[in-house]
Simulated assay, not measured.
Amino acid sequence: MSTHYLHGKFSSFFTFISISCIAIDVITLLGGVFSRYIFGSSPIWIDELSRYLMIGAVMLISGVVLLEGEHMRLNFIDKVSSKKIKTFIHLYQNLIITFVFGFMTYFSFTYAISIYKFTTIGLGISKSIPMFSLPVGFLGLFICSFMSLLKSISNLLHMVRCQQGLL
């Protein structure tokens, strides 16, 4: 299985889920506005559900944005003229962000598990349920950064082989 195939499947799955969250969010908010103007009040859970859906949509799409190269980053590296230095900087960057996203996945997962006894005010569900969007999002970022790290290692090995005259 190629990384291009995995990239496409990963991107389409998380894009679909994120767009679904935003669509449900818009429908929920429109229902709240409708009920406020028709009945004079809206259910308390609409604001809470809207917030959780928006956070979930952002966390789920962040891995796709990272894979597409559109995530927030410093682009001074692209201006470096030496291919060797650029390759090492990309490798270092990908190593660091893979470690950070792995740590954040673990930390947010343990936090989401630790608050399972507490319930939300409006929806009355366990706070762990909406909080799991964080570890899922960070896991997506970890997977994407790991794929970028593998690509950086491949580029480095290719550069070494070219310098040794093996290619």
Score class of each variant (00 low, 15 high):
residue 5 Y to Q: 08
residue 85 I to S: 15
residue 147 M to C: 08
residue 167 L to P: 01
residue 54 M to Y: 10
residue 12 S to W: 07
residue 26 V to C: 11
residue 101 F to M: 09
residue 61 I to S: 14
residue 104 M to H: 14
residue 41 S to C: 04
residue 165 G to M: 05
residue 88 F to E: 04
residue 117 K to R: 13
residue 47 D to M: 08
residue 130 P to F: 14
residue 95 L to T: 09
residue 110 T to C: 04
residue 152 S to A: 15
residue 48 E to V: 03
residue 24 I to Y: 12
residue 52 Y to S: 03
residue 27 I to T: 04
residue 11 S to K: 01
residue 112 A to R: 00
residue 128 S to Q: 04
residue 73 R to E: 15
residue 142 F to P: 01
residue 46 I to R: 02
residue 102 G to E: 06
residue 145 S to L: 06
residue 122 G to C: 11
residue 41 S to K: 02
residue 79 K to S: 13
residue 19 I to E: 11
residue 110 T to F: 08
residue 51 R to G: 12
residue 19 I to L: 14
residue 87 T to W: 05
residue 65 V to A: 08
residue 73 R to T: 12
residue 58 V to T: 14
residue 4 H to Q: 15
residue 149 L to N: 08
residue 28 T to F: 04
residue 1 M to Y: 07
residue 96 I to H: 06
residue 83 K to N: 14
residue 75 N to E: 05
residue 76 F to H: 05
residue 17 I to N: 02
residue 115 I to A: 05
residue 92 Y to N: 03
residue 116 Y to T: 01
residue 28 T to G: 08
residue 16 F to S: 05
residue 112 A to S: 13
residue 62 S to Y: 04
residue 116 Y to R: 03
residue 144 C to A: 09
residue 82 S to F: 13
residue 121 I to N: 08
residue 59 M to L: 10
residue 97 I to M: 07
residue 110 T to A: 13
residue 15 T to C: 13
residue 63 G to T: 00
residue 11 S to D: 10
residue 36 R to W: 11
residue 5 Y to A: 07
residue 139 L to R: 00
residue 47 D to E: 11
residue 47 D to Q: 11
residue 62 S to I: 00
residue 149 L to P: 01
residue 116 Y to E: 04
residue 62 S to V: 01
residue 152 S to F: 10
residue 41 S to E: 10
residue 20 S to Y: 12
residue 133 S to G: 04
residue 27 I to E: 04
